[in-house]
């Protein structure tokens, strides 16, 4: 099991709202999300595509696509500093140094026309002011940190000369190069093979154990959550609908959506006769009905679910859920 997370709060997100203003109306991609993250803790943000987990991550970095997207409300406090009131210039000092991100696809997140050394060195040069030989040595050191063999030679390679797993390690090296307080990993292993995925997850866990870094893991795969996270927040239609420790969520999931997501996971250990599946699709975020957004797909829906959004209820210490069933 993992060691206990430190008690120090690193990140506090309070009532974050990120909306997209489009021709067809306002899309409430993130609608009142709150969570906190302690030192060394890893939090899993789980949900289907379009539930707002990636936009939440982009909001933390203030990288929401402009001009359609805007953070319209809430607070993001990182190490006691409010990020939303920072200027763009100040934000540049935060990104990559205090909080950094690994994206899903290493094929597109590295620039194909620059050598690895340049791309790894960029953030180090900007945040740590290193130049020349010391910059080169530092870049070599971070490649070694992510277990890339022959880092000296790799610094001179181009991304296309490397395999997908190696490329994703380089992306990891860039993100980790300035020892960020918070690392956001947005589905970092979906494009990797299973064996390479296992290697990569182990690497992230080892690095986290040796540093004081906190991790936000964005995924729709409960296997990754089971393997990597201390706490879980399940998102649906721009809101967190259930949160708790990873054991609580796996042992007694309370929200019907969480239960359905867990039931839809195919076990490797056995072979069920028929798979459980959640019928229907996530709702369109253009004009959500006033009640619970999961209403249409919920097997335990009642009339009141359609009318009002349920408030957060604590079912056990640290485990809370937004569902009328739990009230």
């Amino acid at each position: 099991m993992k060691q206990m997370a430190d008690d120090r709060l690193v990140l506090e997100v309070d009532d974050l709202k990120t909306y997209f203003f489009t021709r067809w109306g306002v899309v409430k991609a993130v609608d009142g999300v709150s969570f906190s993250l302690r030192q060394k803790e890893s939090l899993g943000l789980v949900g289907e595509s379009g539930c707002g987990k990636s936009v939440t991550a982009l909001s933390l970095l203030r990288l929401v696509p402009q001009p359609a997207g805007r953070i319209v409300g809430g607070k993001i406090r990182l190490l006691g500093e409010e990020l939303l009131s920072k200027s763009e210039r100040e934000m540049r000092k935060v990104r990559g140094r205090l909080i950094s991100m690994i994206l899903q696809d290493p094929m597109t997140s590295l620039n194909p026309v620059f050598r690895i050394g340049f791309q790894v060195g960029e953030a180090i040069q900007m945040h740590q002011g290193l130049r020349g030989k010391s910059l080169w040595d530092k870049a070599k050191e971070v490649l070694r940190l992510v277990n890339i063999p022959a880092p000296e030679a790799r610094l001179r390679s181009y991304p296309h000369e490397m395999s997908g797993g190696m490329r994703q390690r380089v992306v990891g090296a860039i993100a980790l190069s300035c020892q960020p307080a918070v690392l956001i990993a947005d589905e970092p292993t979906t494009s990797l093979d299973v064996t390479i995925q296992a290697q990569y997850l182990k690497l992230l866990r080892d690095i986290q154990r040796e540093s004081s870094m906190s991790l936000i893991f964005i995924t729709h795969d409960f296997g990754i959550v089971a393997q990597m996270c201390d706490r879980v927040a399940v998102m649906y239609a721009g809101k967190i609908v259930e949160r708790g420790s990873v054991l609580e969520i796996f042992d007694c999931p309370t929200h019907p959506y969480t239960q359905a997501l867990l039931a839809a996971v195919l076990p490797v250990e056995g072979r069920p006769k028929r798979l459980f599946s959640i019928e229907g699709q996530p709702p369109s975020l253009h004009d959500l009905p006033p009640g619970c957004p999961f209403y249409e797909r919920c097997i335990r829906r009642r009339d009141r679910c359609r009318e009002n959004y349920p408030a957060e209820v604590e079912v056990s210490p640290g485990h809370s859920v937004n569902c009328w069933e739990a009230v």
């Binding site: 064996t195 054991l247 490797v268």
Partner: peptide, 13 residues
């Protein structure tokens, strides 16, 4: 390959 498949419960990390 089997071993690389992720566990379906956090207790089997």
């Amino acid at each position: 390959l089997f071993y690389a498949a992720l566990p379906s419960h956090p207790r089997h990390r």
